[in-house]
């Protein structure tokens, strides 16, 4: 320690930083608290905190009365399905770009990223019509395909930056020792690549879970995930505040917890290795 930190200074910065952090987090916290209040207590003025009526009823209500379980299941299937399919297609591509780079590799990667710049709304109509004609409209498989393609550039990029850090010499060494290509992939490369693949998977499940354009426009009932469910949840006269909060909490909880585990990888992953 070159610079002495006085306890007083540290206390000051700790209080300041925690105040700001709690302020940023407060809307999430308030939603979670409201989800455990009765409807009357949720809209009480002035707002109730310690004296509120606490209940678990909102959760059982939302779970039982709406089609919440179906929306939830759709979200799970679509986000995990599109991520796994995307990985299956992107792993070979990222692999060969990282280990057998050609002159055009960088241009290709840039082109892939540039497809993400195309505004989704611009191609909404043809997508809508293609999905309706092919019977993919309002189906889970249709959304799996759409979200997979939407996130494919990100998946390729993230995998590429992870794979590139695996030293190519290791491959040569294994080859010298007489390892077959299959052995090389199974016993040398896969163990080294798994952390990168895992963080890519985690981040893409989060991106797919939170996607809210195609999931709203390309579904009506059957395949609609949580984003569509929440977007259509209205709160007339505040009668459904507690239930809305409970539904929201259930929609964000799984991804929030995943995100907490993945936040260390988030910076690296979403800046495509530019900030580590």
């Amino acid at each position: 320690m070159a610079r002495a930190v006085t306890p007083r200074r540290k206390l000051f910065f700790t209080v300041a930083a925690w105040s700001i952090a709690l302020l940023i987090f407060f809307p999430v916290l308030w939603t979670i608290l409201t989800s455990f209040k009765t409807e009357v207590s949720a809209v009480a003025s002035p707002p109730e905190l310690l004296g509120a009526d606490w209940t678990l009823e909102n959760y059982s209500d939302v779970w039982a009365r709406s089609d919440y379980p179906r929306f939830f299941l759709n979200s799970v299937i679509i986000s995990i399905g599109s991520t796994l399919l995307g990985l299956a297609i992107a792993i070979p591509a990222a692999w060969s770009m990282a280990f057998v780079p050609g002159k055009k590799t960088k241009d290709l990667l840039m082109w892939m990223l540039s497809t993400k710049m195309m505004p989704s709304a611009a191609v909404l109509i043809p997508m809508y019509l293609i999905f309706q004609r092919t019977g993919l409209f309002d189906t889970r498989i249709g959304l799996v395909l759409a979200l997979m393609l939407m996130n494919l550039p990100v998946i390729v990029w993230m995998l590429y930056t992870y794979f590139k850090e695996i030293p190519a010499e290791i491959l040569e060494a294994a080859r010298m020792d007489g390892a077959s290509l299959l052995n090389e992939v199974l016993y040398v490369l896969t163990p080294m690549a798994i952390p990168g693949i895992a963080s890519t998977m985690l981040l893409n499940i989060i991106l797919a879970w939170n996607e809210a354009f195609w999931t709203i426009t390309l579904t009506t009932v059957n395949a609609a995930p949580l984003s569509a469910f929440i977007a259509s949840f209205s709160a007339p006269q505040g009668l459904f505040y507690a239930k809305l909060s409970a539904a929201s909490t259930m929609a964000i909880a799984p991804i929030l917890i995943m995100g907490w585990f993945g936040q260390k990888q988030l910076v690296r992953g979403l800046t495509f290795g530019a900030v580590k």
Partner: peptide, 25 residues
Amino acid sequence: PLRILVISPFFIMPPVAASIWENLF
């Protein structure tokens, strides 16, 4: 824990974030 509190809003899906702000705030 500070980092975890600060990063949280990023993981909230847009319709939920919007609906929280619209209704509860």
